[in-house]
Simulated assay, not measured.
Amino acid sequence: MKTHLAAAVGSVVLTAGTLLGAPAAGAQTAAYPTSPFYVDDYAASYAYGTLTWYNRSVGVDGTLQAVGCRRVWFGAYGASDKLLGTRSTSTQCNTTYPLKTGIPADVTGGATYVIVCIDDHNAQPIKCERYDRRP
């Protein structure tokens, strides 16, 4: 009888110790919202990846596939359609180029939407797409 009681008490102490050492479920931070993007030039060049919506910027992680010479332009806009910040690549010719940058959006709540454009070698837009922030 004593061995069963000792085993039961030991099990309760071990379980309590494990639970007390575990992090609280509410202590985890929520992930920032993301949006996939894809823009092509109606030919063979395209840019794709993910926009990550932070509080005062938008992260870009993706790839440009340039056939001929192309560049990618990003513009972050606020709720009143005001341009908050831009980023662009340099002109890239016949290559695969990584897109890894942050677009400033230094207002409370950050950007409401981002415009992504594929430009020609003279920085003239060929095609642009709008991506809205989603909760």
Rank of each mutant, 00 (worst) to 15 (best):
E129I: 03
P125A: 11
L83R: 06
A25E: 14
Y48Q: 12
T95W: 02
I115C: 05
T95F: 01
A24P: 01
G62E: 02
P104K: 03
Y54I: 02
V58F: 00
L64D: 03
D40M: 06
G49V: 02
G85Y: 01
L5M: 12
Q65L: 13
M1P: 04
S90E: 15
A123F: 15
G68L: 07
T95K: 10
T91V: 15
G85M: 00
S88F: 03
T91K: 09
A31S: 14
A111N: 04
W73N: 11
A30Y: 11
K2E: 12
D119L: 11
G26A: 15
Q65V: 15
I103C: 04
G10R: 10
T108P: 00
V114R: 11
R71I: 08
A43E: 15
A76V: 09
C117D: 01
Y46G: 08
P104T: 05
Y97V: 12
Q92D: 02
D119G: 09
W73G: 10
D106Q: 11
L83T: 02
D120S: 10
T95H: 01
L99M: 08
V58C: 01
V9G: 02
Q124P: 00
R71F: 11
H121T: 10
T63N: 06
S45A: 10
P36F: 08
T29M: 12
A31Q: 12
G21W: 10
A43L: 14
R130F: 04
I115Y: 02
L20S: 12
D61C: 02
C93Q: 06
A111M: 03
N55A: 14
V107M: 10
A24V: 09
D81T: 14
I103R: 09
Q65R: 13
T50N: 10
S90T: 13
T96R: 13
Y77W: 13
A24D: 14
P125S: 10
